[in-house]
Design a protein around this nucleic acid. Structure first.
Lengths: 200, 200, 200, 200
DNA sequence: TATGAATGAGACTTCATTCAT
DNA sequence: AATGAATGAAGTCTCATTCAT
């Protein structure tokens, strides 16, 4: 029984099953039975680790967002130029999704759900991202780096653009070549930064 | 019994209830009982008009998207400059949402749901939009109006940006003043067109 | 509008639909909607002709059995030899089923249903048949035409044998050649009469 | 908690309730609520043990017929004279019904139902019986034990006769004295074997 | 900690029946 | 007489959750 680091813990098995099923079938379409079967544990076991079904989702969301939160706080405290921060944020986002496609899909799927019990906390965490970007743009406007605009609108526009591109990529609607995944963040930054107008 | 055109048809009552509840509580969280109560009809009456619950959602989605499809086909056949078409599309979108906030919310909420029965048809309609924009940008690149970029990525980015801004506005996260709703499309077009870089 | 005797009356349409569906799908599996659709009339129309669904079945059953009852009463009052009466009854039965297969199936299907509302009356009518045969055999025993046996047991055995053969024939499990339908009654009578023992 | 072998298992409770209600009220007239109440368990519990309502009936049918199948296979492989096998089959049948009247009634009630989901498998099992008898008679004809006749017709006639007698007995229409139940099979065999003609 | 049988509220859906037209 | 939209009770089945082992 010496743990050889090969065997997953029960907790890990449940978490993996949840990410897999919630992101591919959806929260409601996944029953506790499905979850237990996918994880290879008994239903009762899941209830030893989570209070109820909502808490499972909540934990997945928290874990995914908290990682992002941390990076954002660091960036927020740096005084890097706006464009630079923007590229870093995009790069972080794409890397996260690349590293764990399924969890990324899970979070992105949740973004538009109304009114669920765990939606409140989810929105709280999500708003931090929006606030960070809003402030970033606000400061950019003040320093002249960014064109005059409603910074919150710009923030949501940016988030929406990135989310959608990512989701479609993960869903297989976009061929994300190696090259795109490497240069993508810079290209996307440029696109957003300079707009789609030809400079000719 | 003189029909004063004030009274809603049964079908209309059901439709209104569905839009109201699906967009505010979500599809799964809305039971047929809820729906019947909100519409002021018996449960059986709903089944007289719709085959099952999914078909109700499907009809709402179809109706919302088919209106958009028509406008897009017209634009597609016009030969207006890319930027102009872009502004027209945004204007159409905002007007639609303004005119029927709830239905707009309903559709936007559905964009990210995985795997439901009606998701297939929904995606088919949604892809037409994406294809239209992709072609628009592709032609723009060829005519030199648009900077060199992956036109499909740009299309999804644009869609995501607009969806998110709209959804947040409808959800009350953005104060959309009268002025914004009037000038919004032009401003948003400019933002997307020139990017957020200051021209100073 | 002069009735050209080609057009079925509404009542006839309903009756035909009922026989068709009840015998092929079963009573419970046939909804009033199915019935209305098959008959080509509105649901409400059916309720102008029948009090409720049970009454429709009841009427089918009554009609089928009353025809048989009449013949049996006549036979009962005749003083034909037992074997002769037996053959006549079998012939009548097979002819009836041949003439209206579906109605025959309907009745045979009902023979074994427990406890239904209309089962009571059905059984009353069915028992008349059993009683007739019981009396027939009883008299046969008294006159020495029939071997000593429990006449009621013999009656039920006969009924069961005939029903089952008929039902299987109608269901396609037996190839009932023209020849069998002609000579069947006599052969079956002989089989029952002399048993299956070889006379060699 | 010492299991005194007096307490029924949940499965057994459900099975007993199903046999009781299906045979007395009928399949359609028995709701899952009825079943749960009679068994003294929750509705959900039934679904823990059976996939759906049809599967419950199917299991009852299978159990009843599989016992019969086994005996028949043994007889089939024996080379006993036809008349002897016939008597043994009848004896087995009557004993089975005597031992578990209700289950017997259940099966007999199902014999005539059209088209239900579980009817297909039921018919498969039932046909084995018919085939066995058909072959038995066929061989009897070849060996000269049995009179020349369509052996399949004879098989169905026999089955029908026995079923109906049994069912009426169980339903209380026949007074089956101890004596009859003991000597019944021999008498019934004789009746079928020699026919009802008096040998005088 | 782990199990999985048991629970029962509540979901979706069907369907015989009514009634205004 | 004929229609069919409307009704709502009752049906089957699902599922998050509990609890004795």
């Amino acid at each position: 029984m010496t743990d050889t680091s090969k065997e997953k813990t029960t907790e890990q098995k449940i978490e993996d099953a949840a990410v897999e099923l919630f992101s591919n079938k959806g929260f409601h379409e996944t029953s506790m039975r499905d979850l237990a079967a996918e994880a290879g544990v008994a239903i009762g076991t899941i209830y030893h680790h989570y209070e109820d079904k909502n808490q499972i989702m909540l934990k997945m969301i928290r874990r995914a967002l908290e990682e992002r939160e941390k990076t954002i706080q660091e960036l927020n405290e740096s005084n890097l130029p706006v464009k630079w921060q923007l590229e870093k944020v995009l790069r972080m986002h794409l890397e996260r999704v690349q590293k764990n496609e399924t969890r990324g899909k899970l979070v992105l799927n949740q973004l538009r759900q109304p009114n669920k019990a765990f939606q409140q906390e989810f929105n709280r965490l999500y708003d931090e991202l929006a606030n960070y970007l809003t402030n970033l743009f606000q400061r950019g406007i003040e320093t002249g780096e960014v064109t005059s605009c409603n910074p919150r609108v710009a923030a949501y526009a940016l988030l929406g653009a990135v989310e959608t591109v990512t989701l479609k990529a993960v869903a297989g609607k976009l061929e994300l070549t190696e090259e795109f995944l490497d240069n993508g963040p810079r290209q996307l930054t440029n696109l957003l930064w300079h707009g789609i107008e030809s400079s000719n």
